[in-house]
Design a protein around this nucleic acid. Structure first.
Length: 909
RNA sequence: GCAGGGGUGGCGAAGUGGUCAAACGCGUAAGGCUUAGGACCUUAUGACUUAGGUCUUCGUGGGUUCGAAUCCCACCCCCUGCACCA
């Protein structure tokens, strides 16, 4: 028995490949090229198996392409830009327990941890190195000579600056206001990952309607300005503290005290004075649209934490308002008027708000009702005759019209509030800050969108469903804030107060890969916009460059565009969209990306890996335990972009079959040889499997690829041997084909097999992918072997039912005349599926066999059968069957009516 | 709200017009091996059936077809993403 000693085997082939230089992409214009990339990753921790999933998928592509004769370039960089590295360093500095625990788990030295706290770049380089080691251990065929980290070097920064100047020249950069959730204590934008509470919350725009009361203004904040014509009153809450504030420009507002802190980020407040809210209760303000007098009333449901704490009351369209309005009916009768319903909803979404409210709902039910009312009215509401201005319009249209109406009358303002409570890691409550001078990339540009969609249309995308999502992402693209205040990165060239944020400095860096090793050798003084214009855009050089620059240009023009980008699905609506759009903006059509492959998340051993549980599967650890090839099985977790569950038990099946193959490699030479039907079957099935595997690799269907190329093929060999196949030649060529079929996924063991059967050249050093030999394919023969297997099932079934252990089994293959009739039926059905016509047929319709065959329209005979072959296959199988069924098996021809082509008669005794 | 994806056996999942009771894996049961357990191997695992048969299922309801998990229509339910953040 051959043992699968993976550590030795891995090491041997890893070294051989390293020495061969096959992984290093060298310009060779005589060969077709394939440029593969996987997004740069943040080196802020160790790699685990989940990460490796994407890279293994990419590696399989790289190896498959090499075997098909392509010159492959696959570099890999790292990303230092933005917050993560700095953030991580900071967390170490703050001695966060969780982070220190992780460091301890990985046995990082004390000195290193201390340096991490001070130097984010050191931290980045430290983990980049460890990640690189993990990739190598897992057998990634990455060309490290073109590795770099963005935006770590000044040369790369210059490339980013060049890109941004280019974008600005193209009119794709603008500057403007931008609401963003903000930590008031740390005075910085508060991203999802910096939040203790409120992940996913975002700024919501409220309309503020200014109701005048003498020289002061009551600013009512609302999400539904279109309902103002149905307003009956204004709510304030006498239990909360109000202040009078004077804004820049002179307006005086009455707002809750709590509002003031939030408002600082959105309004210029020049003066704050005390205000007694009770002094204005029961006074009236004028509705600026309908000119009705609206009383100011007291209600305790008004929340001091929400907006201005001045609320416009629209009872017929807001349940809370109706409840309180009804309560006041008695006590404040002098103000009471019947509330007006101004929006109708027809059909099943219609809600009778008066009836609903009459049931005295609890607060949380009222909230739910409110959401329902808002939703149904927004989706299918239409303004009725009670509305003077909006009658006949939908709510969506009415809102727009009302907003412009309010603007015209000078009573409109906006205020942003968070959509839910947000708490920063530091403990402070998040607010909305309107950043005044943010720089944007104008992804909303319709011309850019149109061209980008064209690019998407031309791309090869796997799986295909992704195309719709990507198209949609691009169509809905808005302007993207491209700069930030803190972290690492490249300064915006014309406004050094800003750093270019990470998603924006990483859109076209793949072009930089093609020159990354060469530009290192170039004197910094040459690195400027003119150089990039010359190398990447083929513009006339403005000066004399050293020769290396020509080489850079040649390298770029040879390798570009990106032929395949492999990544996980979470980058699709952002990075991948930006990647495509920036290429479209900057490069010519020939350099637009050509391919994309997307995968989901990988869940390993059911539970998500949890660092605190200590069950983290490190790469090196897994490779040491199971071997690189076995570890790479994770690529087979899914065919598409589903999140895949994968458990390490799968590896057992791999080892078992790997050893089977290694055994065969030792033993096949002793096979006595001889060509039988089963040899033809072997060849035919191998062509099938090869065809399948080829399709699977091309379409990134690696679950199927492993299934067909590895599991099915080894099953086939087992069957061949069990059946009594013993041809040395055929076994050798089968082993060769299998070693090639599995090579992209299992590069090391396949090389071992390939070498042992006498092949000298590395499988990726030449166009080694086996050619399909269609002449070996024999459908009829395969169908007859299927008949054999089906017959075995039937016999087992019979034995089970009869509850006996037979001594003798007779198999009766139908006679030639029945095969003739059978094949006639198949022929007829291929032309026409109308069974009625066959029943009416003079010749066929009366035949008992025909009636039997077409009795069940769900199970019609589909494949031609061959009398000679069926008989021969069964005959040849006699010995195999006898062994398998532990009984004497005899095969003969039978004219019994139970013997049907494809379904021989069975007698057990 | 907008967009995308999905509902198949105890579970995970394959299967997109025809030999489908449904691959493969897990789980479960019986047997083998073992002092025993684990691991491993064999067999079974929708229901009924003593000669290979029949019946019932693929979220719900309807339709197209000789034939539907697969195509069409309506409905119910679930998941994911929505930006300055990697």
């Amino acid at each position: 028995m051959a043992k699968y000693l993976h550590d030795k085997l891995d090491e041997k082939w890893r070294k051989i490949y390293e020495k061969s230089g096959i992984y290093t992409g060298k310009v060779d214009t005589s060969k077709k090229k394939a440029f593969l990339t996987v997004p740069v990753m943040y080196p802020d921790g160790y790699l685990h198996l989940g990460h490796l999933y994407t890279w293994t998928r990419a590696d399989i592509y790289a190896r498959f392409m090499r075997m098909r004769g392509y010159n492959v370039l696959w570099p890999q960089g790292f990303h230092f830009t933005g917050g993560p590295l700095v953030g991580f360093s900071l967390r170490i500095k703050n001695k966060e327990e969780q982070v220190l625990k992780i460091m301890k788990l990985y046995k990082v030295s004390k000195e290193d941890i201390e340096r991490f706290a001070e130097d984010p770049l050191y931290l980045g380089n430290y983990f980049a190195k460890s990640i690189r080691g993990d990739f190598d251990a897992a057998g990634m065929s990455i060309d490290w000579s073109k590795n770099f980290s963005l935006s770590y070097t000044s040369k790369y920064s210059k490339f980013v600056e060049w890109q941004f100047r280019k974008l600005r020249d193209l009119g794709l950069i603008t500057q403007g206001k931008h609401p963003v959730i903000w930590c008031p204590r740390e005075d910085t934008a508060l991203g999802d990952h910096d939040r203790l509470e409120g992940e996913g919350e975002s700024p919501v725009e409220y309309t503020v309607i200014k109701f005048r009361l003498g020289d002061i203004i009551l600013p009512a904040a609302t999400l539904r300005p279109e309902t103002i014509e149905g307003a009956t009153n204004i709510w304030v809450n006498s239990k909360i503290q109000y202040k009078k504030i004077t804004l820049k420009g002179g307006e005086t507002w009455v707002v809750s005290e709590k509002f003031i802190d939030k408002a600082k980020y959105q309004k210029r407040i020049e003066k704050v004075e005390d205000f007694n809210i009770k002094s204005i209760i029961l006074k009236t303000v004028e509705n600026p649209i309908s000119h009705d007098a609206l009383p100011i009333l007291d209600a305790d449901f008004v929340d001091e934490n929400l907006n201005t704490a001045v609320v416009m009351s629209v009872p017929m369209h807001a349940p809370f308002d109706l409840v309180y309005w009804n309560k006041l009916k008695k006590s404040r009768s002098k103000f009471y008027s019947e509330p007006k319903k101004i929006i109708d909803v027809n059909g099943k979404d219609s809600i009778d708000i008066e009836k609903a409210v009459s049931q005295k709902l609890a607060t949380e039910n009222l909230e739910r009702l409110t959401r329902k009312v808002y939703q149904s009215e927004y989706n299918s509401g239409v303004f009725n005759g009670n509305s003077g201005l909006l009658s006949g319009l939908s709510v969506k249209e009415g809102r727009q019209k009302m907003i412009s109406e309010l603007k015209e009358r000078g009573v409109y303002d906006v205020f942003y509030e968070t959509s839910g409570k947000v708490v920063c890691r530091c403990g402070a409550i998040g607010v909305v800050n309107v950043v005044e001078d943010q720089w944007f990339i104008r992804y909303s540009d319709s011309d850019l969108k149109r061209k980008s969609l064209e690019a998407v249309e031309r791309m090869n995308i796997y799986p295909e469903e992704i195309r719709a999502q990507l198209t949609n992402a691009i169509m809905n693209m808005e302007d993207k804030a491209a700069t930030r205040r803190g972290g690492l990165g490249t300064s915006l060239p014309w406004d050094k107060n800003w750093l270019i944020e990470p998603l924006s400095d990483s859109t076209i860096y793949m072009a930089y890969y093609t020159v990354a090793d060469l530009i290192e050798k170039l004197d910094e003084k040459y690195v400027d916009d003119d150089l990039f214009n010359y190398v990447f855009l083929n513009e006339k050089p403005k000066r004399q460059y050293p020769d290396i620059v020509k080489e850079m240009k040649r390298s770029f023009e040879y390798w570009y565009p990106v032929d395949m980008r492999v990544t996980a699905k979470e980058l699709l609506p952002n990075h991948i969209a930006f990647f495509i759009m920036n290429h479209v903006a900057i490069f010519g059509k020939d350099f637009w990306p050509r391919g994309l492959s997307i995968n989901g998340w990988l869940v390993i051993d059911k539970a998500k890996m949890s660092k605190s549980k200590g069950n983290v599967k490190g790469i090196t650890q897994t490779v040491e335990t199971f071997g690189a090839d076995a570890t790479r099985l994770i690529a087979s977790a899914s065919n598409g972009m589903d999140d895949a569950e994968w458990n390490t038990d799968n590896i057992k099946g791999f080892v078992d079959r790997a050893e089977f193959l290694l055994d065969l490699v030792e033993a096949y030479n002793d096979l006595p040889g001889g060509e039988k039907l089963v040899d033809r079957y072997l060849k035919s099935r191998l062509v099938d499997l090869l065809k399948q595997a080829e399709y699977d690799y091309e379409h990134f269907r690696y679950r199927s690829a492993v299934f067909n190329a590895f599991f099915q093929s080894t099953d086939l060999l087992r069957f061949y041997l069990d059946f009594g196949g013993d041809s040395k030649e055929n076994m050798k060529s089968a082993l060769e084909i299998i070693s090639k079929m599995i090579h992209p996924i299992f590069p090391f063991i396949s090389e071992e097999i390939n070498e042992k059967i006498g092949n000298k050249d590395l499988l990726e050093s030449y166009n080694s992918w086996p050619e399909l030999k269609h002449m070996d394919q024999d459908d009829t023969l395969q169908a007859e072997f299927d008949v054999l297997n089906k017959t075995i099932d039937d016999i087992k079934n019979l034995i089970k039912m009869l509850k006996l252990q037979p001594k003798e089994i007779k198999i009766g293959v139908a006679d030639r005349s029945k095969f003739d009739v059978y094949n006639k039926v198949v022929e007829r059905l291929k032309q026409d599926r109308d069974l009625g016509k066959i029943y009416k047929d003079k010749e066929l319709g009366r035949d008992e066999l025909v009636k039997k065959l077409i009795k069940n329209p769900n199970k019609l005979p589909d494949t031609f059968r061959d009398y000679e072959i069926e008989l021969k296959v069964m005959k040849e199988a006699e010995e195999y069957l006898s062994k398998l069924l532990k009984a004497r098996v005899q095969v003969s021809e039978s004219s019994d009516e139970k013997a049907i082509p494809g379904k021989p008669k069975i007698e057990v005794k």
